[in-house]
């Protein structure tokens, strides 16, 4: 029986509400607003209240998938990255770098998001970068 309360910041938008995760036996079972947090004063919106849901969701992607003939097939990382590289190269060669857009996510770390925009700007050469938390 191991119950822990982990303070954190809501990752859904740029407001930065303080949340408290309820972790029972290493499993995230609930999210609460942090009462004394200066940003949200013990209040949350529906997304913040359900932060724990996506962690335990059975719909989460755990492997790279490649769509071939209209169906997703599980492949290893090397294969997936190879396919992505080939297709991106082909698209950029045919239509220019601005035909590519990169969508990043609040569910990744800051560093991963930084890398993604660097990839878009420096490698592909486009400014088409967007993020779900751009409020």
């Amino acid at each position: 029986m191991d119950l822990k309360f982990v303070p954190s910041i809501c990752s859904y938008c740029g407001t930065g509400c303080g949340v408290l995760f309820e972790v029972l036996d290493g499993e995230l079972v609930g999210t609460l607003p942090m009462k004394t947090h200066p940003v949200n004063h013990g209040k949350l919106c529906i997304k913040g209240w359900n932060l724990h849901e996506h962690v335990n969701s059975p719909l989460r992607l755990k492997h790279p998938l490649v769509k071939t003939f209209g169906r997703f097939t599980k492949v290893d990382w090397d294969k997936a990255i190879g396919v992505a590289t080939d297709r991106l190269k082909a698209v950029i060669a045919a239509h220019g770098p601005d035909s590519v857009g990169i969508l990043v996510s609040a569910k990744m770390t800051n560093e991963e998001n930084y890398l993604a925009q660097k990839f878009a700007r420096a490698v592909i050469g486009t400014n088409n970068v967007d993020h779900c938390a751009r409020l």
Binding site: M1, D2, L3, K4, F5, P7, G18, L20, L32, M34, K35, T36, H37
Partner: peptide, 29 residues
């Protein structure tokens, strides 16, 4: 108290020394 915030905490026998940090106050969860 965690980083200046009174937060709920589960005290157990395995980590009994933590009881020194138990606080009461206006926090309500």
């Amino acid at each position: 108290m965690v980083e200046g915030h009174p937060l709920p905490h589960a005290f157990t026998r395995e980590r009994i020394d933590e009881t020194d940090t138990l606080v009461t106050g206006p926090a309500r969860y």
